[in-house]
Simulated scan of single mutants.
Amino acid sequence: MAIKIDPPLAKSLGLHLVVIILLVWGADFTSKPEVVNVTLESEGEAQAPVEAVAIDSEALQQRVAQMQREKSDAKAAEEKRIRDLERRAQQAEKNRADEEVRLQQVAAQKRQADAEAKASQAAAADAKKLQLQEAEKAKQAEQARIKKEQERKKAEDAAKAAEQKRKQEQEALEKERAERARKAADAKRQAEQERLMQEQLAKEASARSAARSRQAATEVDRYKALISNTINQNLYKDESMRNKSCSVNIKLATTGFVTSVNVLGGDRVVCDATVRAVNRIGSLPMSPDPDVYKELKDITLRVEPEF
């Protein structure tokens, strides 16, 4: 039994068959249209011809062109996808290189920071060492000052002891002389003996006066030396003061208290140091002897730092 196919369906089947044949064998689209007969038959029955369908070459060419455009679009899309992948790969490589440069910069900055921190620590250590050295110098200077103060006090104590001894010897001498005079007066009651005794006493008085004058001069020199030594011990000296001097006038009370100090001339640095030393001391060695005090109450000294 023959099966009859509707013309539209037969036309569609014929068109697809022709397209497949052309794609496979490369048909020439410029040739004349061909007629394709499609026959469908069932088992045991004679073939029944299907309505022949003529394929228009222009329609076929349009279909093929459409397929080629679709293939070209697909190829262009694939090429674009590949270009996009390559661009992303290049960007990723650039990002990797930039990151590597950044990491190198970070490492360099860290090395610089570490070096600066190390230098800062070294500077801090040096400053600490210098501070300790300065503290040690200050400690040594204070110890030297204390030692000089002790030496000054020792000198004053020695001067006081010497003065006390001198007084005791003077008192003993006077007592001895008085005893001799008393004994002479008791033993010699005659006028001549009295005259001779008076002459002797006059001579002794004269000798005592001369001795007293000499002793006072000696005491003045000794206390001048004590005052100069006390000032020199309290001077804050440095090498710029070596072989330089300053003349000052100092006025003292009976206790040795400094009432005024005036610079008469000399090196400015030495003069400034001398004035500071005298003001810092406050009281200088002074003899209790009024005659000695008269010579020392308004004293002019030449101060030359001793090293």
Rank of each mutant, 00 (worst) to 15 (best):
I3A: 11
L15Q: 09
L15A: 10
L17P: 03
V18P: 00
I21G: 14
V24K: 06
G26H: 08
F29G: 15
T30P: 13
S31M: 13
S31P: 12
V36T: 02
T39E: 02
E41K: 13
E41C: 11
A46G: 11
Q47G: 12
E51Y: 10
E51A: 15
A52T: 00
V53C: 10
A59R: 15
L60T: 11
Q61M: 15
R63T: 15
R63I: 15
V64E: 09
Q68T: 09
Q68F: 13
D84Q: 00
L85W: 03
L85A: 06
E86V: 13
E93W: 04
E93T: 10
E93C: 07
N95C: 08
A97E: 12
V101D: 06
L103T: 08
Q104R: 13
Q105I: 14
V106D: 14
R111F: 10
Q112M: 09
A113E: 13
D114L: 15
A119W: 03
A125S: 08
K128H: 11
L130T: 11
Q131G: 15
L132P: 01
L132S: 06
E134V: 12
E136N: 07
A138I: 08
Q140N: 02
A141I: 04
E142I: 05
R145G: 08
R145W: 03
I146L: 13
K148D: 07
E149G: 13
Q150V: 12
Q150C: 10
K154I: 04
A155M: 05
E156L: 12
K160R: 15
E163W: 11
K165T: 12
Q168I: 14
Q168K: 14
E169G: 09
A172H: 05
E176P: 04
E176Y: 04
R177S: 06
K183G: 03
A184D: 06
Q190D: 05
Q190H: 00
A191M: 00
A191Y: 06
E192V: 06
M197Y: 04
Q200L: 06
L201G: 02
L201H: 00
A205Q: 02
A205D: 03
S206T: 05
S206N: 07
S209K: 05
A211S: 11
S213P: 10
A217E: 05
A217R: 10
E219I: 11
K224Y: 03
L226K: 01
I227F: 04
I231V: 05
Q233F: 02
Y236I: 14
N243T: 07
S245N: 07
N249P: 01
N249F: 06
K251A: 14
T255I: 03
V258N: 04
N262F: 01
G265D: 02
G266R: 05
D267T: 04
V270K: 02
V275A: 05
R276I: 07
A277E: 02
V278E: 04
V278T: 03
I281C: 04
S283H: 00
L284K: 02
M286K: 06
M286E: 05
S287I: 11
V292A: 08
Y293E: 07
E295P: 07
L296P: 11
D298P: 09
E304S: 09
P305G: 01
E306P: 02
F307V: 06
